[in-house]
């Protein structure tokens, strides 16, 4: 079985603020890490690899320093890595990014399973999985909470708001993975050096069969018009009396008068 795991390097904390001067997100002093959900996708791949001897290829699109995350994935147990890096990819939205990733997966060829985290913790879109499935023209199972490999494919548990789904999927298929699916391991310290025996391949735009109109900013229908800090909601606030029982009695009276508390509700 050949598995491609798509990962993203994200800031180590989402606790970011907008810089008053630059009006942009202030990322000073914040280093990158593998998106937490993607660690679960990697772990899912490694679990399948342990059972089936599958080949695990890890892939990301981004600037050259994303190579750290690929190398980390190699140290965790991936067999090889592909970095998609080109100035032409800059400014891509989800659609343009998904297009490039899907073309890279096509170039690898004969991929049976594509695994992604359910979403990234920075952009929070969760769109990449369905977009790549569509461009690869394969079936998708998103938000998998449990994956088991079985004869001819996968067995997946998935939870909707009020529904539990038991899905059997034939290969090829794309699956996005939740943080319920497994417990990702830490990189073993000694394995880091050994991982350099494995290869990180860089593909530029010219290495892929791309339609120039569909990549980067030009290929992105979405435009970010502005960013801002979340507004705090200010309410009219009424201070209740200091004595707890007086406070409680007054509150209950007010709530009943306003029909907020109705006896039989």
């Amino acid at each position: 079985m050949k598995i491609v795991v798509g990962i993203k390097q994200v800031p180590e904390t989402t606790n970011v603020k907008i810089n008053e001067k630059t009006k942009n997100i202030d990322r000073r002093g914040i280093s990158g890490v593998i998106n937490q959900y993607d660690r679960h996708a990697l772990e899912a791949a490694f679990e399948i690899k342990a059972k089936t001897n599958a080949e695990v290829i890890v892939m990301t699109m981004g600037p050259d320093d994303f190579v750290v995350s690929l190398q980390e994935a190699l140290a965790l147990g991936a067999d090889s890595a592909v970095l998609l890096s080109d100035r032409a990819f800059a400014g891509a939205d989800t659609l343009a990014t998904g297009y490039v990733l899907s073309e890279a997966i096509k170039k690898i060829g004969d991929v049976d399973l594509v695994l992604l985290g359910q979403q990234s913790v920075d952009a929070d879109t969760g769109q990449m999985g369905p977009i790549i499935s569509e461009f690869l023209d394969i079936s998708q199972v998103t938000y998998a909470s449990k994956l088991d490999v079985e004869e001819g494919g996968l067995r997946i548990k998935r939870y909707l708001e009020n529904i539990e789904q038991d899905i059997t999927a034939k290969l090829p298929v794309l699956v996005t993975v939740t943080d319920q699916a497994n417990d990702p391991k830490y990189v073993n310290i000694v394995e880091i050096a050994k991982s350099f025996e494995k290869e990180v391949t860089t593909w530029h735009a010219s290495d892929l069969n791309l339609d120039a109109d569909r990549v980067g900013q030009a290929g992105s229908p979405s435009v970010v018009r502005s960013i801002s800090s979340p507004k705090e909601v200010v309410k009219d606030n009424y201070k209740l009396p200091d004595n707890p029982q007086d406070a409680a009695d007054e509150l209950v009276k007010i709530l009943k008068d306003k029909n907020i508390l109705v006896e039989d509700k």
């Binding site: 890490v33 190398q71 990189v187 310290i189 050096a193």
Partner: peptide, 14 residues
């Protein structure tokens, strides 16, 4: 990025 820097980054992340 050289191997030493990458290794150190991975280690410190971990």
């Amino acid at each position: 990025m050289d191997q030493k820097t990458i290794s150190q980054d991975i280690l410190l992340r971990m």
